[in-house]
């Protein structure tokens, strides 16, 4: 399926959010996820099914003021 990850189009297998994160190399990374604008807690990634056209945000610690 084709989804948007951090604003860029990606072809991924999925089907779970946890699978997609592993595919993208973020399986073990300290990141937080939001699907179509809603927060998905780490514990729910294994049960969250992605579908074509979904918008995924993967955020990480960054400098801030």
């Amino acid at each position: 399926m084709r989804i948007e990850v951090n604003g860029a189009s990606h072809e991924v297998a999925g089907p779970m959010l946890a699978d997609v994160l592993a595919e993208l190399g973020w399986g073990e990374a300290r990141v937080a996820t939001a699907l179509n604008g809603d927060f998905v807690p780490k514990g729910a990634r294994g049960q969250t099914v992605l579908k074509d056209g979904d918008r995924l945000e993967v955020l990480a610690p960054m400098q801030g003021g």
């Binding site: 951090n6 604003g7 973020w26 990374a29 300290r30 990141v31 937080a32 945000e57 993967v58 955020l59 990480a60 610690p61 960054m62 400098q63 801030g64 003021g65």
Partner: peptide
Amino acid sequence: VSLRRESGQG
């Protein structure tokens, strides 16, 4: 600190 899209530096 803040949160931003993971770009390899996070």
